[in-house]
């Protein structure tokens, strides 16, 4: 059985480095297959000294706890250095999962990318 579109390819991440914040535009599925890829990108950003991260979730059709875990652990790391990880434009499905997991109070969530970037 090949990985196909259910494997790592089901997730793509584009990073845009801005003045005060690094934006990660995530699209596709974030589940136990693909969460290592998200982890890798987040870790790379943090290791290179970025403390302010913005994760754009508009194109994320699905996020399981495997993805939430990566977001929470990245948030923990940047908070320690006085930074923050904020989310922008989660779909209703992803928003529901964040809600049920009790994470909407933990993350600052924006529905507009410009406002989100400006918040840093």
């Amino acid at each position: 059985m090949g990985l196909g579109d259910k494997g790592q390819d089901a997730l793509s991440i584009v990073v845009e480095e801005m003045h005060r914040v690094n934006l990660l535009v995530v699209s596709g599925r974030v589940d136990s297959n693909t969460s290592p890829k998200l982890s890798e990108h987040l870790t790379r950003q943090i290791d290179s000294g970025a403390m302010n991260l913005l994760v754009d979730l508009q194109e994320v059709e699905y996020m399981s706890s495997a993805g939430l875990r990566e977001l929470v652990s990245a948030l923990k790391r940047v908070k320690k250095d006085g930074g923050d990880l904020r989310l922008v434009s989660p779909s209703p499905r992803v928003k529901e999962v964040l809600d049920l997991a009790g994470l909407t109070t933990l993350f600052e969530i924006f529905d507009d990318r410009v406002k989100a970037v400006g918040s840093f």
Binding site: S65, L68, R69, K79, V97, L100, A101, G102, L106
Partner: peptide, 19 residues
């Protein structure tokens, strides 16, 4: 997992079961 806002109290291990 607690719904606490204290980051250190969040135990991501139980998230899946919680969901």
């Amino acid at each position: 997992p607690t719904s606490s806002q204290n980051l250190d109290e969040i135990q991501p291990g139980g998230l899946g079961l919680h969901l």
